[in-house]
Amino acid sequence: MLVYEIMQGEKRIIAGVYHLSKKLGRHFALQDISIQLANGEFAFLVGPSGAGKSTLLRMMYMDDIPDSGQVIMGSYVSTRIKRSTIPQLRRKIGIVFQNFRLLEDRTVFENVALAMKVAGTGLTEIKSEMADILTRVGLYHKRYEFPGSLSGGEQQRVAIARAVANKPAILLADEPTGNLDPIVTREILELLFRINSSGTAVLMATHDVELVRSFGQRIIYLQDGKIIKDKEMLFRGNLRDSISDSQVDHRARKFTDHRIGEDGNGTRRG
């Protein structure tokens, strides 16, 4: 099960993609991608436009199916999941987009409440939790306003509030700061860090290498559908030797290689 908890002292792999390939038209959008995310981890997925970041995230929330390879999100496995089970997965993960994707005809409160209603939460419970959720993103005082009257940063915070309303184990953010100015970008990043520190793993895709370099978090570099560098865990492809700031821990690499294995299924814990 994908659960909202931190196992003290133990790392559990809560999300993983294994030897993932996807062709869009003639070229590979993703080619033999393998990544694992542990609970409570924060990772940036960095690469230029068209590198395959969004495609990879879409595979992870199972909006698209890979041509080969496998996605494992908690107990949901892409090769075995039924179409009717996908909504269950979506309720247990949070998703944030560059263009916010809020329902324009609903207030802030209703937008966040929708995610909870869909997950089967009753209105009483929603009301009692809403104050906490909206206070965390600093928008409780604007709960009755419509997205149209909010700034970009505020809209993104509503989207984030919606994404974490069901206390997901993992938050997938696809260029969440792409439409925002530098100051607001910082605020959103800080918000994501705060969410991460309360136990939700975050995978944030961005094209902005400069932005993420300073934080010392794990950075996964993606280019032309391939991972060219995964700062914390492994290197892949021919670029392996050319990477200068190698901090690779050989034991970690060995561990990861072992975990992923050649069968394409990966061994999975948690």
């Binding site: 929330y61 009717s84 909504p87 269950q88 247990k92 998703i95 994707r101 329902l103 929708l114 869909v118």
Partner: peptide, 16 residues
């Protein structure tokens, strides 16, 4: 269409 897609993304089943 957009609202239907958003509903899907937050985990609403087709029936709902």
């Amino acid at each position: 269409r957009e609202s239907v897609e958003i509903m899907k993304l937050v985990g609403a089943t087709n029936g709902y």
